[in-house]
């Protein structure tokens, strides 16, 4: 690209246009980040310490929360991707009413997350919830208590996330499918390729960038999951649905241990950065 030397005292013409935004973001994103480092590295007496990070390594609750966050992320992601891809292909193959189906399927994702979670509180309630009621009505008597049961809570919360965010994968993959040019598909058909061969050798490779972006964006969001779990279970019963975000929240705002909360949040930050680098690359490629 340009390798011209920058003359001394040169001020880019665009600088005053960009400066206010950069200033605001420095104050609201970068300064808090530095503040968090300081919090995490400062002991009770104000002396510098690594105690918050060493404590992290021995904290069983944090370990459990991290394991549950990973389980949550992988479980939800696998289902959302599989169902989202199948739905995108299905709707794309329809001859009519595509946009109506598409709009309806997108609804769960657009709801305020709090409202989506409230819907499922009404559905899951073991005493009077509509889910058990409907199951009973069609002859299935279940004693499942969904989000209230120690063993079923995590799966139930994952279920809500699948309902809410499969539409996101669906949306990005639908757009990806629509952007695929017709010529290679037709060429494959003329060459006598079967539907499956066309899908595997033409559609899938062309859809790959959209798939990568969708999965990375979703993964980035899943590792920080908070809203739905907060409304549905508050991390319970016990710690059955506690995730890293919820544990950080409790540590900071219930137990007022800001330093330890800050230290934990860096683990989450590193996990996010693993995905965000990929997201940036995928976005620039588009």
């Amino acid at each position: 690209m340009k390798t011209r030397r920058i003359p001394a005292g040169f001020v880019p013409e665009g600088l005053p246009w960009v400066a206010p935004s950069v200033t605001v973001l420095l104050a609201l994103s970068i300064y808090p980040l530095i503040f968090a480092v300081k919090l995490a590295l400062t002991g009770a007496g104000g002396a510098p310490t690594f105690a918050n990070f060493t404590r992290l390594a021995h904290d069983r609750v944090f370990g459990a929360a991290a394991a549950q966050t990973i389980l949550f992320t992988l479980g939800a992601l696998a289902f959302e991707f599989g169902v989202g891809l199948a739905l995108a292909l299905l709707i794309d193959s329809l001859a009519r009413a595509r946009s109506i189906f598409r709009a309806a399927i997108l609804v769960p994702m657009l709801l305020p997350p709090v409202v989506a979670a409230v819907c499922w509180r009404l559905i899951y309630n073991p005493q009077f919830g509509v889910l058990n009621g409907t199951l009973r009505r069609i002859g299935i008597h279940t004693s499942l208590t969904w989000t209230n049961g120690e063993s079923s809570a995590l799966a139930s919360v994952i279920g809500v996330d699948i309902w809410e965010w499969t539409p996101f994968i669906f949306l990005l993959l639908s757009a990806g499918l629509q952007a695929i040019p017709q010529e290679p598909l037709e060429a494959a058909r003329i060459d006598g390729a079967s539907a499956w061969q066309t899908f595997r050798d033409v559609t899938l490779p062309l859809l790959k960038p959209a798939m990568v972006l969708a999965v990375l964006l979703r993964a980035m969001d899943l590792v920080r999951i908070f809203d739905q779990i907060f409304i549905l279970t508050q991390g319970g019963p016990g710690t059955a649905t506690e995730t890293v975000s919820l544990y950080i929240y409790r540590t900071a705002f219930r137990f007022s241990n800001f330093g330890y909360a800050a230290a934990m949040s860096f683990v989450l930050l590193i996990a996010t950065m693993l995905f965000s680098r990929g997201v940036m690359k995928a976005m620039r490629a588009r």
């Binding site: 994103s29 970068i30 920080r224 908070f226």
Partner: peptide
């Protein structure tokens, strides 16, 4: 922009969006 600052600044601005809220909320 000299030295592709536009791209660097743009990327940096986007990356601040990807910070998990729970990281910045305590500070």
């Amino acid at each position: 922009w000299p030295r592709r600052w536009d791209q660097r600044v743009g990327d940096w601005i986007l990356s601040t969006r990807m910070l998990p809220p729970i990281v910045t909320i305590v500070p």
